[in-house]
Nucleic acid binder design. Structure first.
Lengths: 224, 224
DNA sequence: GGTTTTGAAATAATCGATTTTTTGCGACTA
DNA sequence: TAGTCGCAAAAAATCGATTATTTCAAAACC
């Protein structure tokens, strides 16, 4: 058997389409494109160094995921931002993540506790340099994923991840607020403490506050 | 200005890709393909009368939607069925749909009540012929959509729709159970009554029973 | 005998070119 | 002068062919 790249590094070899999907997804959440902007496919082709077919496949996936709008015969658009949609996303995040957190705390085992502490540590360390935003964002996403991971519901986690990406689109466009940011950082550690102690009600209510505080920051996105 | 087809009938003109998406989606939910089956792209090309590019775009969308699994360099597969996943889907449906129902009953107006009665009537009428399953399925889906429509949360409705499609994949594969079916039909009318009277608690608990009863039917899918 | 290698066939992914549809703008008209 | 019309340019969608990767069965090896 010829050894495929996937057998070497354990990861499945990526196609041009899947690489383009990941890259464009990242840039959409990052706020690289203006809300409402129409994507110029030939320009994207050059920027992401990818052919037309894989590019279109990536854009189709992103549309089904909700990070793009697809209009028949008139291409792809970046969805507009609205205060109202942000409210929808934030409220739903609270509902779904609190649901998942409860189940995670009931079902999480020692292995989970370890991974949660590891994720917390990575988040604290990544926090230092303001130049490496992308590093922190990745650690932050991973922290929240780890927190809810053992909830036992793949579909719930899927929806939460999707909403998180939508929410981050707003948050990352908003002007930073150091005071609130410090509070949010503190809450991450408090969440870990409560999770380890299985203080379900406390953790739920803190997670709700956490999302509401982020929401407050994210609201700055629709102002500009 | 040349009058485009869309300007005539009010609908946006469809592309080959979007038509293929709808057709294959319908067939996946219908159970036309075996669970776990690998899709033969060249065969699909012939069956859906569509070229390779639009077909692949449709399959990419379906993967992002969750009705297919995409594995890099090895094509598309129909997701396997499992008792466990069905449980996940059903439980989450209960949570999300009860949430939406509460809000819909609080916010629904007279127009909603009219549309709900209309949807109920269509469902009862479609029920008659056992030959036209597809008609009933459409009316049924529409009834449940109408019931929750005024909840005010587009994202919640999106997730509910997605879960409903997943659930139906199981339900439609399961052997029919006339006794339970009669109960389910009765519940639809009861739900309308409670919705009109704004008996929120009653309606929530009935909707939960309704989903649990459907779940019982759907469990027959993993047996065969 | 069981495992590994090999290579042809099958399949997936991508490319380049073509077709179809929309868009933008200037001329025409009431 | 506001509203149509028509045409050229631009963009989207699709096609047909090509390239890359996987699969599978037979041959070689230990």
């Amino acid at each position: 058997m010829t050894i495929s790249p996937s057998a070497v590094d354990g990861a499945v070899s990526e196609t041009a389409a899947s690489q383009a999907f990941e890259a464009i997804k990242r840039d959409l959440i990052r706020g690289r494109f203006a809300a409402g902007e129409k994507l110029a496919i030939s320009a994207l082709k050059a920027e992401y160094q990818v052919g037309l077919s894989p590019l279109r496949e990536a854009l189709n996936r992103l549309s089904a995921y909700g990070l793009l709008e697809q209009h028949n015969q008139r291409g792809f658009r970046v969805p507009p931002l609205s205060e109202q949609e942000l409210e929808d996303i934030a409220r739903l995040r609270i509902q779904l993540e609190c649901m998942a957190l409860t189940q995670a705390m009931q079902q999480g085992d020692a292995e989970w506790e370890s991974q949660l502490l590891a994720a917390q540590h990575r988040l604290l360390r990544a926090d230092q340099q303001p130049s490496q935003v992308e590093q922190w964002e990745q650690a932050h996403l991973r922290f929240h994923r780890t927190l809810l991971a053992p909830c036992g519901s793949p579909w719930l986690l899927r929806f939460i991840g999707q909403l998180h990406d939508q929410f981050d689109r707003y948050r990352r466009l908003a002007p930073p607020n150091p005071a609130i940011r410090a509070q949010l950082d503190a809450q991450h550690s408090e969440l870990v403490e409560m999770a380890l102690d299985r203080r379900i009600q406390d953790a739920r209510s803190l997670l709700e506050q956490h999302i509401q505080l982020s929401w407050q920051v994210a609201q700055g996105a629709t102002g500009c």
